[in-house]
Amino acid sequence: MKIQRTIYWDKLAEIKELKQFFEEDYRRFKKLIENHIEELEKFSDEALDKFAKLRVLEVTNGCTQWAFRRGDRECLSVEQTRECMNLVMGFMKRTELYFPSEGKIEFNDEQKVLIQAGRSLYKNAFKDNIKKSEREYYAASTAQFIVYDRERTKRAMTLVKQDYETLFSLYYIERGQKYIASYLEGFE
């Protein structure tokens, strides 16, 4: 559903992960984000709620995985890190979510296509190290935060904290929230 919003492109261009793409070609990267925004705006509010929950889980899991790979002092144990990864990757592979306080959340076929495309883009960008895919991934990710909007994303962050803090730990829940916050400051 298309809504009016103000996007602070210069603020988004300062985000560490986005900076190089804006510097390389500001207009093309901005247009790429806008294209993803248009694609996402076709989905219902109910679908966007589900996508936001998945996105917050992905970010939180990403924080735990990167910390483990880097050997951060605060990283979770091998077993905990694997459990976090298996939970989120399982949700993505089955294209369904489960929250203890809400139960099973399913996606329709059109929504599943978007999730599978996101998984493929992530794999190409970060497993196969394809630079063009990384650019596309960050454009899509930025568009997601913009379309999901601040309130929906905050509700999803509250739910993930409530239902999965014991798995991810408060530290990584907060790390994920901090990562997301920089994007949420880029629009209203």
Results as ranks from 00 to 15, higher is better:
62 G>Q: 07
83 E>W: 00
138 Y>M: 07
74 E>S: 11
80 Q>C: 03
110 E>S: 12
48 L>R: 14
106 E>G: 05
164 Y>E: 00
165 E>S: 10
141 S>W: 08
135 R>C: 05
104 K>F: 09
90 G>I: 09
116 Q>E: 14
73 R>M: 05
55 R>A: 11
69 R>P: 01
60 T>D: 03
88 V>S: 06
70 R>V: 12
85 M>I: 02
152 R>W: 07
76 L>W: 08
95 T>P: 00
106 E>A: 13
65 Q>E: 12
153 T>Y: 08
114 L>H: 09
122 Y>P: 00
142 T>H: 04
96 E>L: 13
53 K>H: 00
49 D>C: 04
54 L>T: 13
48 L>M: 11
158 T>E: 15
82 R>H: 11
45 D>R: 12
59 V>R: 02
107 F>A: 04
59 V>T: 15
85 M>F: 12
97 L>I: 09
145 F>W: 15
139 A>S: 03
137 Y>M: 00
117 A>M: 12
50 K>Q: 01
149 D>E: 15
90 G>C: 10
111 Q>P: 06
121 L>T: 12
86 N>F: 11
109 D>K: 12
70 R>Y: 08
109 D>F: 13
144 Q>A: 12
137 Y>R: 01
157 M>I: 08
112 K>W: 01
74 E>N: 12
125 A>V: 00
140 A>S: 15
54 L>E: 05
107 F>M: 00
97 L>Y: 14
102 E>I: 07
90 G>S: 06
63 C>S: 06
112 K>H: 03
148 Y>W: 13
42 K>C: 04
162 Q>V: 00
154 K>W: 12
81 T>Y: 03
120 S>N: 12
110 E>C: 02
94 R>K: 15
154 K>G: 00
50 K>T: 05
52 A>H: 02
136 E>C: 01
160 V>P: 01
104 K>C: 04
65 Q>T: 08
108 N>F: 09
129 N>C: 04
133 S>Q: 12
42 K>S: 07
95 T>D: 12
52 A>I: 09
86 N>T: 09
87 L>S: 07
159 L>V: 04
43 F>P: 01
59 V>D: 05
112 K>F: 05
91 F>V: 02
53 K>M: 07
88 V>F: 02
113 V>W: 06
57 L>E: 01
56 V>P: 07
123 K>C: 06
50 K>E: 05
165 E>M: 06
80 Q>R: 15
137 Y>L: 04
119 R>K: 09
76 L>Q: 10
